[in-house]
């Protein structure tokens, strides 16, 4: 059995070898990556998706199939957190651990000020996802942070976690249905159901709808996660 110091030295040596291989691969980067996709998105991206923000365009149009499964992984992770924490959520949670640590009054008054602003900012990020940086995933995370502030204001807030998870599942189904609508209108699945010829103002309807649905789903998923954690701890 090697001593711990010599094991660490072997580990550092192995890492140095990996680092050398990485540095060698940087010389030949051009064979791994080129600018073809970037040029294509720059020339055709705006006309085909109707979105100024090309990142949102890729997430909701070109690579919608990927985004659907990323949202699915979120649902699976939330289910895993609930399954592992194994609390009977129907029970009233004993709050014997909360009482020991009081939230300061200054913090509570400041949280009351910040909560509506943060929620409005999250909604703005979601709704303006096709024009400015943002979109469903980021806005949903911001809205979830705003909901988290509510728990600091009111410690005894009760949350029906089963209802939130049900809403999240329904929202995921709605996202898949909106994504499949293009099968009937344009006979290709997982793209914008409005053809580019119809004009940009109609393409935006699809983008905003899907952004709002994804944003709500992410917000409800993160809400479930930190409710499970708050029930676990103080």
């Amino acid at each position: 059995m090697l001593s711990s110091v010599s094991r660490k030295l072997i580990l550092i040596a192995a890492m140095a070898v990996v680092f050398g291989l990485f540095a060698a691969s940087l010389i030949d980067l051009a064979s791994l990556y080129n600018d073809a996709t970037k040029d294509y998105f720059f020339e055709h991206g705006f006309e085909e998706t109707g979105s100024n923000n090309l990142v949102t365009g890729i997430l909701l149009d070109y690579r919608l199939f990927d985004s659907l499964f990323e949202a699915g992984i979120l649902l699976v992770a939330v289910s895993g957190v609930i399954w592992v924490s194994k609390h009977d959520f129907a029970d009233k949670n004993p709050n014997f651990m909360i009482d020991k640590y009081k939230t300061p009054d200054l913090f509570i008054s400041f949280a009351r000020l910040v909560y509506p602003l943060l929620l409005a900012f999250g909604l703005y990020i979601i709704l303006n996802g096709h024009l400015s940086p943002g979109g469903g995933f980021q806005g949903g995370a911001l809205a979830a942070t705003a909901i988290l502030i509510l728990y600091f204001i009111d410690k005894n807030k009760e949350t029906d976690i089963k209802r939130i998870v049900t809403i999240e599942k329904v929202l995921y189904l709605a996202i898949i249905l909106v994504a499949l609508l293009s099968l009937f209108t344009r006979s290709t699945a997982f793209t914008n159901f409005v053809a580019p010829a119809a004009g940009r103002q109609w393409q935006v309807v699809y983008l905003v709808t899907l952004n709002v649905l994804i944003g709500l789903k992410v917000a409800f998923g993160l809400w479930t996660i930190f409710t499970a954690f708050l029930k676990e701890g103080r």
């Binding site: 990020i125 940086p133 943002g134 995933f137 980021q138 995370a141 911001l142 979830a144 942070t145 988290l148 993160l222 996660i225 930190f226």
Partner: peptide, 11 residues
């Protein structure tokens, strides 16, 4: 950056 700030600030 917005996603990282929103996730890494509080949750």
């Amino acid at each position: 950056a917005i996603a990282e700030v929103a996730i890494g600030a509080a949750i």
